[in-house]
Amino acid sequence: MEFKTFVFYFLSAILVFAGLRVITARNPVHAALYLVLAFFSASGVWMLLQAEFLAIALVLVYVGAVMVLFLFVVMMLDINLDRLREGFWSYLPLGAIIALLMVAEMALVLGGNYLGLFESNVAQAGADTSNVQSVGRLMFTEYMYPFELASVILLVGIVAAVALTQREKRKNKSVDASRQVFVKARDRVRVLQMPAEKRD
């Protein structure tokens, strides 16, 4: 077996194991941590495919940012583990349908190799071109408008999130920092002159 194949199977085994643990781990925080492990192994597999930009971006975006926020939420929620496990049988039919759909989709993708799904006459880039450069070039020339559209949609999401949290009136009494920096000592401190009193 070639070393590359060995590395691929090794990473894939970790990936599959971590993926399984994500859905079987009892503790939601542990499940999230296994998801982090899954992302790491997936990034390793992508690295094997020489998609180094995607691999590093996966770690940077998903592990470095998204999963941290995920953990934030999971840790803050007061999750009752037993309540979470109730109603397994009533949700089973719905879950089974979704699972079957996903298996079918995966079969389409994986079977595509044999059924000629990927036979295309798109030119393949040479090995010496930098991944980051070609992704960047495409994104800012050919896919400029979809890219800008995606960023606007994200911006709407940010504005909506901020608006949702700011709906109620501010309850804390923190001082506005931009006004605070202009405060001088004489605005707050009053120096009194008092004649010394005699003790009797």
């Binding site: 941590l33 180094e52 590093i56 971006a57 770690v59 953990l71 991944n131 980051v132």
Partner: peptide, 25 residues
């Protein structure tokens, strides 16, 4: 000597925050 070394450093150092958040929890 990799081409995307700055990107690599940014992604690796962004993992450090897990130490903090996990130790707290």
């Amino acid at each position: 000597n990799v081409n995307a070394s700055l990107l690599y450093i940014m992604s690796i150092t962004s993992i450090g925050v897990y130490g903090i958040i996990l130790s707290g929890w």
